[in-house]
Design a protein around this nucleic acid. Structure first.
Length: 271
DNA sequence: AGGAAAACCTGCGTGC
DNA sequence: TGCACGCAGGTTTTCC
């Protein structure tokens, strides 16, 4: 689920319910995520107020009285608000029990996600230090792209997914942005014409904005209920469509592997 | 020093 | 039906 649109949709979905609440308790069922959950997390968090919830790249950042709770959803993570006492099922590793009758529950089958505590200035955190510009701000531009990729002859799709070049773009939206930009994913990153760079920057912003507006690729339901399949998947031009007919030109969508990830493209539409 | 591959996990679909 | 295999929305760490 989680590329930038899904993380942002999660943030916006839970923000109204958690902002201003206090942590009553913390339940850790599985401390072993990508890194161990700090053993003293409950001790650290109990009694603190969640002042706000922010996002940087694909990280969710809960601004607390004494520091920041950092949550990453990895490949399979999701967060949902359920009422106190709701029985947990498999892979629901962490609960933050809030003082409004709800608890914030992290589910993550593959456990590539992370829950970390940071008592200092969030900008100093090592995980956030090497991140590139946010794609939906003016910090991500043709200029920032040129500067980051000027010496890179690796494939453009790899550069697009590199969080040091631009954050938030994962495999789905990299494929989609390149299709929309009419650029082959195998082109060298530093060989794009100025016109193509402009197009790519524009289409990255566009596809992410559309996906957020659609509630990401999962439904905008973070309170109770089930996590249903989402809306944006209907709009894929390339991702997951190997051997299917191109919706634009009628040719066949091809698939290859780049950097151990699946790439989808249309040879007729992308150059 | 840059770039590719391995590593961390579980679940699901496919094919024998 | 069972089992082996490949693949999945990410990113740090390790290896050339």
């Amino acid at each position: 689920m989680p590329e930038l649109p899904e993380v942002e949709t999660t943030r916006a979905g839970i923000a109204p319910m958690i902002t201003g609440t206090h942590i009553l308790d913390v339940v850790i069922r599985t401390p072993k995520l990508r890194w161990p959950i700090p053993a003293d997390l409950a001790e650290q968090l109990i009694g603190q107020t969640i002042k706000s919830i922010e996002r940087r790249a694909k990280y969710l950042l809960l601004d607390m009285d004494q520091g920041w709770l950092i949550i990453h959803l990895g490949m399979s993570g999701s967060l949902r608000l359920v009422r106190h006492g709701t029985p947990n099922v498999a892979h629901e590793h962490v609960d933050l029990i809030l003082d409004n009758g709800y608890l914030l529950r992290l589910r993550d089958p593959r456990r590539f996600g992370a829950v970390l505590w940071w008592a200092g200035d969030i900008k100093q955190h090592p995980l956030l230090g090497k991140l590139g510009p946010e794609p939906l701000t003016e910090n991500f531009s043709a200029e920032s792209w040129k500067k980051a990729t000027a010496k890179q002859n690796r494939a453009i799709k790899l550069a697009l997914m590199d969080q040091a070049v631009v954050v938030g773009v994962g495999n789905i939206y990299a494929n989609e942005a390149l299709f929309r930009s009419a650029i082959l994913p195998t082109r060298a990153a530093n060989q794009l014409k100025p016109q193509e760079i402009d197009r790519l920057v524009k289409e990255v912003k566009q596809v992410l904005t559309e996906a957020i507006a659609a509630g990401g690729s999962t439904l905008r339901d973070y309170v109770g209920g089930d996590g249903n399949a989402g809306y944006f998947q209907q709009n894929y031009w390339a991702y997951g469509r190997a051997e299917e007919v191109c919706r634009r030109c009628g040719g066949l969508i091809e698939s290859i592997r780049q950097g151990q990830r699946a790439t989808f493209f249309c040879r007729g539409c992308q150059r």
